[in-house]
Computed example of a mutant assay.
Amino acid sequence: MSGFDTEKPEAVDPERLISPSTATEPVSGVLRPIKRLTSDDRLARIHPETLAKTELLYYSDFARTFVRSDYNFCAAKMTVARGGKLLALEAEFHTAETFFRKALAWANRLHGRRTGLEPERVTLEIKHPLSGRLVRLLTIYDRLFLKTMEALAGRSVMAHERKAALDAAAARLKQIPQLCIPDNDRYAPEGVLLPDSDDTH
């Protein structure tokens, strides 16, 4: 059994989750480098609080797909988040960071054998502190991916334990795009998502 809670978040939308079967696939020899990120035009229009670039090294299909499909969208939406939405995002990041800290501590205790995988890399723009925190979470996800792959090779973790850990980690990360989707005015000041006006009729 893993030494941390692998239960998925209650509010996670299964339709938004990347398939667990692809979440555990390695990059090396399988995936092409990312050439263009979705929503790059949206992010380019944002006037940043901060402006930096970072290079993300990734091994997993989950990280590649998240970066390509969700990162720029999240980065743009987080830059303009205000009030209750910003509070909700801060709370989710705190929860996710706590989860990943425990997950990585568990993975670091596992005995593993090096796999020889080489990472792909992509350059990401950081226009808000939350974007930097998202990149760190993706980095930790991939460390968890690699550590558990090595542990699987070293027979110190079972395949179902690894799958449960990676599925829970993926679900935790996918909460962030879900929170980014509603506009600022859909959140109460205390960070609670208000019901859609269509749902009240």
Rank of each mutant, 00 (worst) to 15 (best):
M1I: 06
G3Y: 12
D5G: 01
T6F: 07
T6Y: 05
P9L: 02
E10H: 03
E10D: 09
A11P: 07
V12T: 10
D13A: 05
S19V: 04
S21V: 00
A23K: 00
T24C: 13
E25Q: 01
G29I: 02
I34Q: 08
K35L: 05
R36K: 07
R36S: 06
S39M: 06
D40L: 05
D41C: 02
R42M: 07
A44E: 06
R45S: 01
E49C: 09
E49G: 03
E49I: 15
A52I: 06
T54R: 11
E55D: 04
L56R: 07
S60T: 03
F62R: 07
F62M: 07
R64A: 12
F66M: 08
V67S: 07
F73P: 00
A75V: 11
A76Q: 00
T79W: 13
V80S: 15
G84E: 00
K85L: 02
L86T: 03
L87S: 15
F93E: 15
F99E: 04
F100G: 06
R101N: 09
W106F: 05
R109L: 14
G112R: 15
R113C: 15
R113A: 10
T115S: 13
L117Q: 14
E118N: 12
E118S: 14
R121L: 13
V122Y: 11
V122A: 10
L124R: 06
L124C: 11
P129L: 03
L130W: 13
L130G: 01
S131E: 12
V135E: 03
V135N: 00
V135M: 09
T139G: 05
T139H: 11
D142Y: 11
L146G: 09
L146F: 14
L146P: 13
L146M: 15
M149Y: 15
E150G: 14
L152S: 13
S156L: 09
S156D: 03
S156R: 05
R162M: 03
R162K: 13
K163Q: 14
L173E: 05
L173P: 02
K174H: 10
P182K: 04
P182R: 04
D185E: 14
D185V: 07
R186W: 06
Y187D: 12
Y187G: 08
G191K: 04
V192F: 10
V192H: 12
D196I: 01
